[in-house]
Amino acid sequence: MTSTIENQRAPFPIAFYRSAVGKKWAMAVTGLAIILFTIAHMIGNWKIFFPDVDGIPEIDLYAEALRGLLFPLLPEHVVLWIMRTGLIVVFLLHIHAAYSLTIMNRRARQDDYAGPRQYIAANYASRTMRWSGTIFLAFLLFHLADLTWGFQPMAPEVWERGEVYANFVATFSRAPVALLYVVAMAALALHLYHGAWSMFQSLGVNHPRFNLWRKGFALGLAVLVFVGNSIMPISVLFGWVG
């Protein structure tokens, strides 16, 4: 019972986060935030399918508008940076919780079964969360270098800040890059197939009325994110866009 008393002394959020159940809450909440961001990001990017406005691509206008959110109430870029900071914190928390829970779980199960281990309920997605997450994180860094920072050689040679549409077309005209994006989306979809269901369980959102919907929701979300995002590099690759 010492742990409870010790935890009581720490401020509530820290005491809560110290426990594994608390870390799972953090993973679920940050996971939900990342899901919402992913969907907003995807919908925003669909603007590449729309015609130019006065010779300027729709998505370039959208990117400019994001920079000017709440302007002139706040200086330009402020709201965007608040959102970016929030997103970075959310990602760091998600990764830290996953890392420390992994360490805890490895310690709790040191010896594996020597016999043929038969999984009955665990599926491929649930058993590869660490892999799909790590692969997606590596992709995320590539993606930022490619389309946000314009670092060579990840970004196309013609990359230019602010030219969202041109950069977009240039990067996906490279077949290996387009393929990499599709593979990364498959990893993300796999991660979401378990994560989006697991989230309800970790948050204690459980009711016979909608328990059956939770796995359907996770599957639908995984398909939506995979198809909705992969369609963009594929469209460029096959010349439907650009």
């Binding site: 409870t4 426990s19 594994a20 709790a108 199960r109 309920a121 649930s126 970790s202």
Partner: peptide, 22 residues
Amino acid sequence: ERMVEIMEEFFGSCTNHGECEK
């Protein structure tokens, strides 16, 4: 609070595989 925290001193954490239920 106590049962969860004592549990975590000995065991791992749940990743919602569902193997236990089966």
